[in-house]
C-alpha cells in the first residue's frame, strides 16, 4: 500500500507502481527469461546447499559426540561463519574460476558452518542423561544414533537446514551480483543497467519469495521435529 502510494505521488521513474511491477513479472515469466535465470541460479544454490547439508549434518553431530572432532573442526568453521561473504568471493573465484563449481563452492562455504553448528547444538539437546541411559541398557553405537540421537537432535538439525537454505540463496545472489553475472543476479543487473525499475523490482521480489518459501518449508519440518522430540505430540 505504502509502496503504491509512494510510486503514484512521486511519479518517479525509479519507483515503479505495483501494477507495472506485476506486468513486468508476467512478461519476464512469459518469455521464459525468468525461468531460465531461476534455473541457472538455483542449480548452483541447490547443489551447494545439498552438499553443505550432506557434509554439515553428519559433521555437526560427530562434533557433538566426539570432543576431538569438535576441537579439530571448530576453529575452521568459526572462521567460515565469521567471514563477510562479499569479501571472500573474489578469493574463491581466483581459486576455482568463474564456472558452476566456483558458485557451488561459495554456496557451500556460506551455508556449511550454520548447518554444522546447529546440528551440534541439536546433539547437545539430547543430553548426556539419555546417552548414559542408553549405554546402560546396552545400546550399540548404531542403536544410539538411530533410536536416540537422530530423534533428539532433529530440531537442531532442521533449524540449521532452514538457516542454511537462507544463507545458500543469499550466497547465490551475492556472487551473481558481484562477480559472475548469470541467473537472477544477471536479471537484476540488466534491469538496473537499462533503468527498468519494474523489472528490477520484479526480480528482487522473486528472490525474496523463493527465500521465504524455503524458510517456511523447513520451518514446518523444524516445528514438527521439535514438538515430537520434546514429547509434545498433539493428543
Amino acid at each position: 500500500m505504502a509502496w503504491e502510494g509512494a510510486a503514484l505521488t512521486s511519479g518517479s521513474l525509479l519507483l515503479p507502481t505495483v501494477e507495472a511491477t506485476a506486468w513486468r513479472l508476467i512478461e519476464l515469466a512469459g518469455t521464459g527469461e525468468l525461468w531460465h535465470a531461476l534455473w541457472v541460479s538455483n542449480h548452483a544454490a541447490l547443489l551447494g546447499f545439498a552438499l553443505a547439508g550432506a557434509i554439515g549434518v553428519p559433521l555437526g553431530l560427530a562434533m557433538g559426540r566426539w570432543p576431538s572432532a569438535d576441537w579439530f573442526f571448530d576453529p575452521y568453521l568459526n572462521v567460515m561463519l565469521a567471514t563477510p561473504m562479499p569479501a571472500a568471493i573474489p578469493v574463491v573465484i581466483m581459486v576455482a574460476g568463474l564456472g558452476l563449481p566456483a558458485r557451488v563452492l561459495v554456496v557451500v562455504l556460506f551455508a556449511l558452518a550454520t548447518i554444522v553448528f546447529h546440528a551440534r547444538a541439536g546433539f547437545r539437546l539430547v543430553g548426556w542423561e539419555l546417552l548414559e541411559m542408553s549405554s546402560a541398557f546396552g545400546a550399540s553405537e548404531w542403536q544410539l544414533w538411530r533410536k536416540v540421537v537422530l530423534r533428539g537432535a532433529a530440531p537442531g538439525i532442521w533449524l540449521g537446514v532452514r538457516l542454511g537454505a537462507i544463507r545458500a540463496v543469499s550466497a547465490m545472489v551475492t556472487i551473481e551480483l558481484l562477480l559472475v553475472a548469470v541467473g537472477m543476479g544477471r536479471l537484476i543487473l540488466d534491469a538496473q543497467g537499462s533503468l527498468d525499475a519494474a523489472g528490477l523490482f520484479a526480480s528482487v521480489m522473486v528472490i525474496v519469495a523463493e527465500s521465504v518459501l524455503l524458510a517456511h518449508l523447513f520451518q514446518r519440518f523444524e516445528q514438527d521435529a521439535s514438538q515430537a522430540a520434546m514429547g509434545m505430540a498433539a493428543e
Binding site: 542423561e129 546396552g138 530423534r151 522430540a229 514429547g231
Partner: peptide, 25 residues
C-alpha cells in the same frame, strides 16, 4: 539394570515405548 536419579526417559516416546526401550535394544 539401572534406575536413574533424573528418570532419563525418552521425551518423545510414550510410557509403553519407554518401558520397552531396554527390550527393544
Amino acid at each position: 539394570a539401572m534406575v536413574f536419579q533424573n528418570y532419563a526417559l525418552l521425551p518423545w516416546a510414550d510410557v509403553t515405548a519407554n518401558i520397552a526401550f531396554g527390550l527393544e535394544l
